[in-house]
């Protein structure tokens, strides 16, 4: 064996660690989830009861699954239009210098550790949304079921909006990349037949880069699903029946915040850790599906 072959094998061995880790993570999580599914059966996925007390143990993760879906949905609903607006501003209205500065600032949002978002969400943002969003909505539209709970500021809405802020950097940067690749011929063609900038954006850029934008949204969704700390601090940490989304202003829980909040309190001899590990497995599967689809779409746009 010559030295190049040794190098080849060595680097292959090291690179295989990632493959090995991924396989192990999946196998180990499945193995540790099995006991709780064995006991609860299908109820583990569709029940709303959650009781770690020994002898009365019952675990159903439906409310937390719905919590993850709802907060991620709010994040996309609010975060995506804002991100798209930013991408438009950077590609259509900014010169190189402005684009550089604004781009850097937006990307700094991604540099802030999640736990600091949580701290800010718990002490600052909470009061803001309580005062200016939740109380007015409750006051005027409290009859609608989505606004029907007495607001506290620690709820699905806060969790979803924090996530919206957190996904802006990734969604806006990819959307910007995608919009930059719209051929000048298409834009100029629309201008040439008397189109306005609005026509260019709506009938040209958006139509041309539809798939790329969908990819960006999915990447944002993947980020929102897996995010833990910030949400765990602002969502109110309800469990069981209480965690079912009743309105935007009700306290809840997501799969990841449940794990963060309960893991250290779980008795290792009970099924409680297994129930939490199972929540992690569901989270893993959701994240993998969303991110894989995003990657397949976005990779077409790279280079």
């Amino acid at each position: 064996m010559n030295e190049d072959e040794i190098f080849h094998l060595f680097s292959l061995a090291v690179a295989s660690i990632s493959l090995l880790l991924l396989a192990l993570i999946f196998v180990v999580l499945v193995q540790y989830t099995f006991p709780v599914i064995n006991k609860m059966g299908i109820n583990y996925f569709i029940s709303t009861s959650w009781n770690p007390v020994f002898g009365k143990e019952e675990y159903g993760i439906l409310p937390y699954f719905l919590g993850t879906v709802l907060t991620s949905f709010i994040a996309i609903l609010v975060g995506v239009p804002v991100s798209f607006g930013i991408a438009l501003f950077l590609t259509e209205y900014s010169n190189k210098t402005l684009k550089n500065y604004l781009g850097t600032m937006i990307s700094l949002l991604a540099a802030i550790p999640s736990v600091i978002y949580g701290l800010w969400g718990f002490f600052i943002f909470r009061n803001f949304i309580l005062e200016y969003i939740e109380r007015p909505l409750y006051h005027y539209f409290g009859g609608l079921s989505i606004f029907s709970t007495t607001p506290t500021g620690l709820d699905f809405l806060n969790g979803g909006l924090i996530l919206a802020i957190m996904i802006i950097p990734i969604v806006s940067s990819i959307t910007t990349e995608v919009l930059e690749q719209v051929p000048t011929e298409i834009k100029e063609g629309i201008y040439a037949i008397g189109g306005s900038r609005y026509d260019v954006v709506v009938h040209g850029s958006i139509r041309y880069s539809k798939n790329g934008i969908i990819g960006a949204i999915l990447l944002g969704l993947g980020r929102a699903i897996g995010e833990t700390m910030a949400v765990s601090m602002v969502i109110g940490n309800a469990t069981g029946e209480n965690a079912l989304p009743k309105s935007l202003f009700s306290a809840g829980q997501t799969l990841s915040s449940l794990i963060a909040n309960e893991f250290n309190e779980a008795n290792p001899t009970s099924l409680h850790p297994n129930a939490l590990i199972g929540a992690g497995l569901v989270l893993l599967i959701m994240a993998v599906i969303v991110n894989l689809s995003a990657r397949m779409i976005v990779s077409k746009y790279k280079r």
């Binding site: 292959l12 690179a15 295989s16 990632s18 493959l19 880790l21 991924l22 396989a23 192990l24 993570i25 180990v28 999580l29 540790y32 993947g222 699903i225 897996g226 995010e227 833990t228 990841s256 794990i259 963060a260 893991f263 939490l276 590990i277 992690g280 989270l283 893993l284 994240a287 993998v288 991110n291 894989l292 990657r295």
Partner: peptide, 28 residues
């Protein structure tokens, strides 16, 4: 051929929620 699988794993590992990594290390 082997590298496609490895590159795929690196991508998936990149996308994993970090709390899942914590659970894995807790178990092993």
């Amino acid at each position: 051929k082997k590298s496609t699988l490895i590159s795929f794993s690196v991508d998936l590992l990149y996308d994993l929620p970090s709390i899942v990594v914590g659970i894995f290390v807790y178990i092993v």
